[in-house]
Each structure stands twice: as C-alpha cells, then as structure tokens.
Design a protein around this nucleic acid. Structure first.
Lengths: 225, 225
DNA sequence: CAAGAAACGGAGGAACTATCTCGACTTCCA
DNA sequence: TGGAAGTCGAGATAGTTCCTCCGTTTCTTG
C-alpha cells in the first residue's frame, strides 16, 4: 500500500489485536477503579480489575500520572462545558443552580475527578488550564444572576471553587450512606446565596439518622496516619 | 487508702524531676505539632519538637494512640460545653450561631482536633461519647431557634455534623492563605438556615483573589498518593 | 506454517515512610 | 555513692506502592 490517510491519526504503529483489547480494558478498569476508590488506588488494583498483569499496564502508560492524564483529559474539559451550558439557560438563577448541581454530580460520580480538581500534586497543569477556562464563565454566571436580582451582591467568581469544595466534602462523606445527601446542603447554601427570600426552599433529601451518621463517620478517611 | 482525695489523682509513683519536666515538654510539643501539622505528624516530629529522643516519648506513652488520647481527652469534652454555652444564651439564634462559630474556631486552631472529630480510625471511642453528649444539646439549640421562628423548620440535629464538616473543609483549605475565610461561608450557610430573611447578611471576610486561590490549591492535600 | 516481533504476567527489586525497640550511657535521689 | 529511673537515637520491623525484568505466550506476516 502507498498512503491513504483518511482519519489522519498519527499512528506510528497499529496495535496488535490483543493489545488493543487490553488497552480498552485497562482504560475502562482505570475509569471504574479511580472513580470508586479515588486516585489512591494502586496500579495493581487497576491491572487486576482489568484482568491483566501490571506489566501490561506499564507497557501502555509509562507511569501512573500518564494513565491518569489520559483518563481525565476530556472529563476535566467537560466541566467547563457545564458552566457554558448554565450560561445558555434562559433563567439566570436556574443557570447557576444547574451548573453547581451538575458539577457536584460529576464529583459524586467520580471520586478521582474530585481529587484531581482539589488535590495539588496531580495534573495541576491541566487543572489550572481548566480553571482558567472556567473562571470567566462562572463570573458571568454570577454576574447575570446578580443583575437579575437573584443573587446576593457580595459573592464573587472565586467563591465558586470554595462552595464546590465545601459541598464536595459532603459528597465524599456520605457517598456510601446517602449518595444524594449533598443536595440537602446545596439547597441550604443556595438559599444562603439568594439576594432575598421569604420561605426556605424545602430540603430535597432527608437528614442522616444517627445510625447512618455513625456508619458514615466510620467509613470516612481523610489524610490520616 | 486513707489519704484526702481532693483532685483525686491516682499517682502510683511520683516522677523524677527531669522526667516530669520532659513529660510536660512532650505534651506541649505534641499539642503544637498535632495542632499545626495534624495527627499525621510523626512521633519523631513530636520528640524532636520537644527536644527529647523518641525513646523518651515511648517511655511515657506506649504508642501514638495513647499520646493522642491523653492530649485530646479534655479538648473534645470542651466542645460539648460550647453547645451548652450556646444554650445558655438568651437569644436562640445567637446561641446557635455562637456555637457554630466557636466550634469552627476550635477546628481552625487545632488541625489535630478536627481530624480526631471527623476521621475514623482514631479515638472513635472518645469521639462517639462526645457526640452522644452533644447530640441532645444541639437538638435543643435547633429546636429553640426554630420555635423562635429564626430557623427553617426542616433542619435536624444530625445536620450539624455535616455543616461542621462542610465548613471544616474551608477551614482546612484556606488555613494558610486566609485563616478566617470560613466566616464568609458560615455567613452564607447561616443565611441559608434562616427561616426567612430580606437582605443577605454582609459577608465578613473578602473572597480569595486568584493568586490566593492558586496558593491554597497548591498547598491543599487530602488522601492522595 | 514457521519465525520472529509484539505483548503478557506477576514475582520481586527499590524506595519510602513511620512505628516502636533496645542496650549503652546519663541523671537523679536517698 | 550505688543503683534505680530515665534518656537517646540508630536501626529493626513492617507496610506501602511504583515500576522493572525476563521467561513465556500470542499474534502477524511472508
């Protein structure tokens, strides 16, 4: 053959069939494992979950960083899109709420993503880039809601990461016990962000009861040892 | 035994003078080190900070757990007292606010205390006890504020730990950059907890600016690896 | 179909890190 | 001044995790 390059993918060497299949498996496994156990999951975890040996993982990815990078490349960018989607909504308040909600859903569904966003010592490069992309859109989201008289006038763009961090703590804490619990506290926070209101917005999820609270405390780990 | 037991201290053997002095140093050092670096600080850290060898620390405390236990025994109990203090206030809302505020100050001042409260795998025993003590008082604090018409009627006692957790995340995150930043978000949350309100309570601390945000993100570590 | 290139598996090497021990030495006290 | 109590800190011990290495297996191609 001479040289048709239809999809134009710089592919120096096509992968062998089994290698291709294993690569897919590894990516899938890594996605699941990092999503459920966080970035602290080991390469052995990933390999085992994929049904391959560690060596096979290291044949495709020079190290853990590289695997993580490959995995989360697009997912991080997707967050910025969420903000733009919010801006596309007609109602400014709804736009703000839907962004916060969907960003938290992303955190809830993927523990690895959450850690990537808030831990240093991972892909700061990529994350910083995403934050820079997001900042003006979030600012706009706030500005629009404020102009419409929905939002209190003393919150600013840089408050958003902190609000996400705060609610992200609830996400992590209650993940096992009541995965939607964060919606309860998001509602409270949103009521706190309003310019004014009469009645409180009804809370959408019941509070933890004491046994649940105990269970959650028991499972909760941060940076101990 | 026959002796008078005013403070009732069961002291089988009086410590040698130098040992006494070293014990004090160790306790002081441990207090500081755990407060600033968290419970992850090593025994070597503590010993070095106290100006003694590790062996000396282990002469007094069989292991790290025991040292931590001895250190935080009273401080945890003090938290329950904060709740009772809040109940002693005339104004129900002020009582609630002052409790939350002071509990967060405690978290901000002592990283070790914060970890003890929210991490499992440490003195669950003691912490559980403290929580059991605190629960009814916090319930009362909520109940009283609700009866006075200040508090939204769908929050419950078990919401308090989650609110503290949430704001505790801000405390940790911004400790180095803006140690009082949590007050900003506490204000938002409190506005969200009100039964109704007109204007928003002015935020007491400026938002982080972008460089501060970057600095905080850079210093922030959770359970990575 | 056979030869050789590519890929695989997973034990274990290497590097950390942190807790706790132990025995030689020092200090206090009666 | 004798000996009990105390001190020191190097390193034994144990637990992790990343990543390498190479004998073996699987694919592809001529």
């Amino acid at each position: 053959m001479s040289a048709p390059e239809e999809p134009a993918e710089p592919q120096p060497k096509p992968l062998r069939k089994d290698a291709e299949r294993n690569l897919r498996r590894i990516l899938d496994a890594a996605g699941e494992v990092f999503a459920t156990r966080g970035l602290g999951a080991t390469m052995d975890d990933v390999a085992h979950h994929a049904g391959v040996g560690v060596g096979t993982v290291y044949r495709r990815f020079a190290n853990k960083e590289e695997l993580i990078d490959a995995l989360f490349e697009d997912r991080i960018g997707a967050l910025a899109q969420l903000a733009r989607d919010g801006l596309a909504r007609e109602d400014p308040w709804e736009g703000l709420v839907s962004f916060m909600e969907r960003a938290l859903v992303a955190q809830a569904e993927d523990r690895g993503l959450k850690e990537l966003l808030f831990d240093s010592a991972h892909g700061q490069q990529r994350v910083t880039h995403a934050r820079e992309q997001m900042a003006p859109v979030v600012g706009e989201l706030f500005e629009r809601a404020r102009a419409a008289g929905c939002l209190r006038d003393d919150v600013e763009g840089p408050d958003m990461p902190l609000l996400q961090l705060m609610l992200g703590a609830v996400v992590d804490f209650s993940r096992e016990v009541s995965p939607e619990l964060w919606r309860r506290y998001l509602t409270i926070v949103l009521d706190g962000l309003r310019a004014r209101r009469d009645d409180a917005t009804p809370l959408p999820v019941p509070a933890l009861d004491v046994p649940q609270l105990d269970a959650a405390m028991g499972a909760w780990k941060t940076s101990l040892r």
